[in-house]
């Protein structure tokens, strides 16, 4: 008996997420199952809906597997949003991704991921500040700017820095920057390459503020339909080790992306001193309290989760 699974994502089929992750995953699972698992990959929301609908599509069995950005389903993965808090991150994807998996398996698998088999939660490379006109050298430079973000807590971080967060879907960001609708964004290095953001955002303050979370989730019923030997194939291609491998691939994109940004005409890469970074970290403290309160409100042990979050990420390194 063969099993056909449909994999849906909003990402472009030529993007890293497909060529290096989803397409390969589909191929590997197909091969290792001796062709008994067939994964059909549908990029670019080909099966309809908006990015915000992907999680529900997987929950409802419209598709079997989805790939999405945690922040696109606000309120759905509040615990995962903790991993996106500012300055809790490890700096590279190869360290942050296994940290995320460890935290999720310990604290989130039985709550917000109950309906899913977690294939992999991995992180982007480091997200830094990119601005169009005003270079950010100190915390005060944020005052009055409009910064595009994707995610509630990064929005609160931007507010804590004195700027206004603005939510714009990814395909609209280039134009929004070009037109001055926003003054900058907080986004990871790798994504600036395919979207060519360096053509419009000239200043890059290279300090790792946070790392976004990318989710590859499988409908649990689809997973449980498999006989044990085929489940083992899925298991072998998911979890902490797989997340670490994804992280290494993501990290391989950082250097070329930084080079492209540095070499684009008129661009400047700014570094800040540890003292300045400490001021940013201090400014971000209230955001942690917001997340802890949110966890408590949901009946989860907020403070304990936060302490564990800090401990696990510190174990893998600190940006």
């Amino acid at each position: 008996q063969t099993f056909t699974f449909r994999l849906h994502s909003f990402s472009s089929p030529t993007a890293l997420d497909h060529t290096m992750h989803l397409d390969r995953w589909a191929e590997t699972v197909g091969r290792e199952s001796g062709g008994r698992i067939k994964v059909e990959v549908y990029p670019a929301l080909q099966l309809g809906g908006q990015a915000r609908d992907l999680v529900q599509q997987a929950e409802d069995g419209v598709v079997d597997i989805i790939w999405t950005v945690a922040g696109f389903s606000p309120g759905r993965f509040p615990g995962t949003e903790g991993l996106e808090l500012p300055f809790v991150n490890t700096g590279t994807s190869a360290t942050m991704s296994p940290a995320a998996m460890e935290f999720a398996e310990k604290h989130l698998a039985d709550t917000e991921y109950r309906a899913f088999k977690i294939i992999c939660i991995h992180s982007t490379d480091r997200s830094v500040v990119h601005t169009t006109r005003r270079p950010i050298r100190t915390l005060e430079d944020f005052r009055g700017l409009r910064i595009r973000v994707a995610g509630r807590f990064i929005g609160e971080t931007v507010s804590a820095f004195g700027a206004t967060p603005v939510g714009i879907p990814l395909p609209g960001v280039y134009e929004a920057l070009a037109r001055g609708q926003v003054d900058g964004m907080m986004i990871n290095w790798a994504i600036t390459l395919p979207y060519r953001f360096f053509e419009v955002a000239k200043y890059h303050t290279d300090t790792a503020v946070f790392q976004g979370m990318l989710l590859t989730l499988m409908n649990r019923r689809s997973y449980e339909r498999l006989p044990p030997d085929l489940r083992a194939v899925i298991d072998a291609n998911s979890g902490i080790n797989y997340a670490k491998k994804m992280g290494e691939i993501w990290d391989s994109q950082t250097a070329p992306a930084i080079a492209a940004n540095r070499d684009a005409p008129g661009n400047e890469i700014i570094t800040i001193s540890p003292q300045e970074r400490a001021r940013w970290v201090a400014a971000a403290q209230p955001v942690y309290q917001t997340w802890i309160r949110e966890m408590n409100r949901l009946g989860r042990p907020g403070q304990q989760m936060f302490d564990d979050l800090m401990a696990i990420t510190a174990k893998y390194g600190r940006a």
Partner: peptide, 14 residues
């Protein structure tokens, strides 16, 4: 009904 049950919300204004 699903959106209500699952607490789906918008990103910034919630």
């Amino acid at each position: 009904l699903d959106a209500h049950e699952r607490g789906r919300q918008t990103m910034f204004l919630e």
